[in-house]
Simulated scan of single mutants.
Amino acid sequence: MTPWEAVAIFVAGVGAGGINAVVGSGSLITFPTMVALGMPPVIANVSNTVGLVPGSLTGAFGYREELRGQRPRLIRLGVPALVGAMIGGVLLLYLPAETFDIVVPVLIAMACVLVVIQPRLNSWLSARREHPYPHGGPWLWGGVLVCGMYGGYFGAAQGVLLIGLMGSFLDEGLQRINAAKNVLALLVNACAALLFIVVAEVDWLAALMVALGAAIGGFLGAKIGRRLPAPVLRWFVVCVGIVAIVKLVYG
Rank of each mutant, 00 (worst) to 15 (best):
P134H: 04
Y63T: 00
A85T: 12
K223G: 03
N122R: 15
L205Y: 10
Y153A: 04
V183E: 02
L125A: 12
G137C: 03
E5L: 04
Q158C: 12
A244P: 03
I242V: 15
E172V: 00
W4Q: 12
G88A: 12
A192S: 14
M34A: 04
Y153C: 02
G167V: 03
P41C: 08
Q175K: 15
P119D: 01
I19R: 01
C191W: 10
F169L: 05
K181L: 09
V90R: 12
I197S: 11
L82R: 01
K247I: 04
V232D: 10
P138K: 11
V104I: 15
G62L: 07
P96T: 08
T58P: 06
G26K: 04
C147P: 03
L184Q: 06
A185D: 11
A16G: 06
Y63N: 08
L82Y: 01
L248W: 04
V103K: 05
L212A: 09
Y94A: 01
L195D: 05
L95Q: 05
L82F: 12
L121W: 13
G136M: 06
P72L: 08
G217D: 00
M39Y: 10
C112S: 14
I9A: 00
M86R: 12
Y63D: 00
G241F: 05
R234V: 05
R176I: 00
P105N: 11
G26Y: 10
F61T: 12
F219N: 08
L125S: 09
F169E: 06
V160P: 00
G217K: 00
V146K: 12
A156S: 14
V198C: 12
P72N: 09
Q158N: 14
D171L: 13
V198S: 14
G38D: 10
E130L: 14
V115D: 02
R128A: 07
V83C: 14
A12H: 09
C191Q: 12
P105A: 07
A192R: 05
E5F: 07
P231W: 01
M86N: 11
W4K: 02
D171M: 12
G221I: 02
V246Q: 05
P32N: 08
E66N: 14
V249R: 13
P3C: 01
R226Y: 11
A244D: 00
P229A: 06
A21R: 06
P80V: 05
D171F: 08
N189S: 15
V22G: 06
L107N: 03
G218M: 09
M34W: 06
E66W: 06
A6H: 03
L186R: 01
A127T: 07
A111N: 05
V14K: 03
P132A: 10
M1I: 07
V160Y: 02
R68Y: 04
N189G: 11
G69F: 09
